[in-house]
Nucleic acid binder design. Structure first.
Lengths: 139, 139
DNA sequence: GCAATATTCTATTAAAAAAGTAGGGTATTG
DNA sequence: CAATACCCTACTTTTTTAATAGAATATTGC
């Protein structure tokens, strides 16, 4: 049931942006260095985050990324979706996925896995970057 | 966040046993055939379930597997654990796993992923084979 | 203008994990 | 005692994930 490293990197990077003062950008390379992520890999992640509208970028020298929304308005669920990771525990519950299973409509297990997915979604959908940062300050 | 097919096969097979009248065994090969699983693959799964004490077996002709406990006493969490799948969304939360992360103790994200794991565990730990079967009868 | 910086994009390769296969062994029944 | 069915280990293939590579585009500041 593990998340891909791409997802965890994405959340780490978003937290880094969340830590920045408003109006300031931070370069991808700096984030990569600080978290021990290869810059080239983080690039791909930021492109996805950008496409999803979660970050904005400023090009050229002194450029970088920044958040365009308040940190309590960015849900972890959105970050996950942006990088293409699904919360579905089984393939037949991934949205836009052919089920390949003839008895999908009449499958009690599928009903159960759906409940599991709903539980996970509810968790991810009710937590924002702000909630994680608050945790940081506590410790 | 997908489960391995081994886990889903394991739950399917356990449900098959749960459907059997008490005192009756069902052979691995029959379960495999009914669900379109390769018998050789299912064998490995049953060995794990057996080791975990979730099923018992009767050898020889007419033999097979059966549940040794009431179906409301077998949690889905136990089945998952039996086949070696962890509910942890990140590696550093898998029990018995070296974290490889120096700042594991002071990681606000880790705290968050832990909450996520707890949410999933609570779901898996509060549902039994009986709960899934009840769903079946409804539809 | 132009050089330096930094993001954007696509394609390919490498590594890791999962899924499946194979083959022999052991126990039990009828 | 032969047929059935579980038991165990090792290996191979496939799939997925992670990483790398190389080039293109945009912007700043001198």
């Amino acid at each position: 049931m593990r998340l891909t490293t791409m997802t965890t990197y994405a959340v780490q990077a978003m937290l880094e942006l969340a830590d920045q003062p408003i109006g300031k950008v931070i370069s991808l390379r700096k984030i990569a260095a600080r978290h021990g992520i290869k810059a080239k890999y983080l690039e791909q992640i930021f492109i996805k985050l950008n496409h999803a509208g979660l970050v904005k970028s400023k090009k050229g020298p002194g450029g970088g990324y920044y958040l365009d929304r308040p940190i309590n308005a960015i849900k972890i669920a959105e970050i996950m979706e942006a990088v293409g990771e699904s919360s579905a525990p089984v393939r037949c519950l991934i949205t836009g996925m052919q089920s390949h299973c003839s008895r999908a409509d009449d499958c009690s297990l599928r009903v159960y896995w759906k409940k599991m997915k709903d539980t996970i979604d509810q968790f991810l959908d009710s937590s924002t970057l702000y909630d994680i940062m608050r945790e940081k300050k506590k410790t």
